[in-house]
């Protein structure tokens, strides 16, 4: 689905300041249907990488192929942007129409889709994110989580095969975060959508199939969540953390209790042998 080799990107220099190298030879592969989380501190290059995935940025060196199409080739740009849809942090910046369903229709309309087909796509997309009953609502009457789901529906209506979400829950309250995460996991599990989620919340990343960790423009870790969060100390050194229960498991190990070092959820913690023997 996505194959990138030795991707390098620098933001243009101005005045005397040296150019800022934000990607330093990143190799990335994503298979169709995978759910990938990208972690990294602010400024580690996550968002720059994400913007390469639908050719908003093209690599200075190295090559990125989306379903075999080179992103550097301007002829492929349209096709790539239909294949890979993006959702950003602030829902208010992404919604442009005054009625929810018109906003969702904006994408397919611009692709030149037939009106009857647009209607079908809008209904399907709103149903997929659980917002059908709000299809005629003005977006500013919706909560943050609802607005973000409308933004996701807007991308779905363009029938992408992969969806990239750049910190979609950063501005939301806990229920909004839950709604968006449930929508994302459902899209991945039920419709086989390839999902790339950039986040600062470790509990969200723990739900992915695989986690990529970026640091200073370099991909430093690439593994399943269990193996990533097992390295609690390394994660902390990178300015990141691990989910609360994982941290507790590590703390208990330090104090001599033989808890597994790779528990990720409350359920796993509760069913750990060492914990069970205490209950």
């Amino acid at each position: 689905m996505i194959l990138g080799e030795k991707l390098t990107f620098e933001y243009a220099a101005y005045d005397e300041t040296p150019p800022v190298l934000t990607l330093k030879g990143v190799d990335i592969t994503v298979k169709a249907g995978e759910f990938i989380a990208i972690l990294g501190h602010n400024g580690s290059g996550k968002s720059t990488l994400a913007k390469h995935l639908n050719a908003l940025l093209v690599p200075a060196e190295g090559t990125l192929w989306i379903k075999g199409a080179d992103t550097k080739d301007a002829e492929n740009t349209w096709r790539i942007r239909q294949t890979v849809g993006m959702v950003f942090q602030n829902p208010d910046n992404q919604i442009i129409a005054t009625i929810v369903e018109e906003d969702v229709a904006f994408g397919p309309e611009n692709l030149g889709v037939k009106p009857t087909e647009i209607r079908k796509r809008v209904d399907e997309s709103l149903a997929a994110v659980g917002m059908s009953e709000h299809s005629l609502a003005p977006p500013h009457h919706l909560s943050g989580g609802q607005k973000q789901r409308v933004a996701i529906a807007g991308v779905l209506a363009m029938h992408p095969e992969c969806i990239v979400l750049d910190e979609p829950t950063a501005m939301l309250d806990p229920s909004g975060r839950r709604e968006v995460m449930e929508t994302i996991t459902k899209l991945n599990r039920e419709s086989g959508m390839t999902v790339i989620l950039i986040t600062h919340f470790m509990e969200e990343a723990a739900q992915a199939d695989r986690i990529l960790v970026m640091d200073d423009g370099v991909l430093v870790m690439n593994d399943i969540p269990r193996n990533i969060f097992r390295q609690a100390e390394a994660m902390q050194k990178l300015g990141l953390g691990v989910p609360g229960v994982t941290e507790l498991a590590h703390e208990l190990r330090r104090r001599g209790l033989d808890v597994a070092d790779d528990v990720l959820t409350i359920e796993e913690f509760m069913s750990d042998k060492a914990i069970k023997s205490l209950l």
């Binding site: 309250d173 909004g176 509990e203 229960v245 507790l248 409350i266 913690f269």
Partner: peptide
């Protein structure tokens, strides 16, 4: 009401129910 408790707090509630 759309809020949450810290993850450790939920965990301790689960543990408390068992012991």
């Amino acid at each position: 009401i759309g809020l949450d408790v810290p993850q450790i707090s939920s965990l301790m509630t689960c543990l408390h129910e068992k012991n």
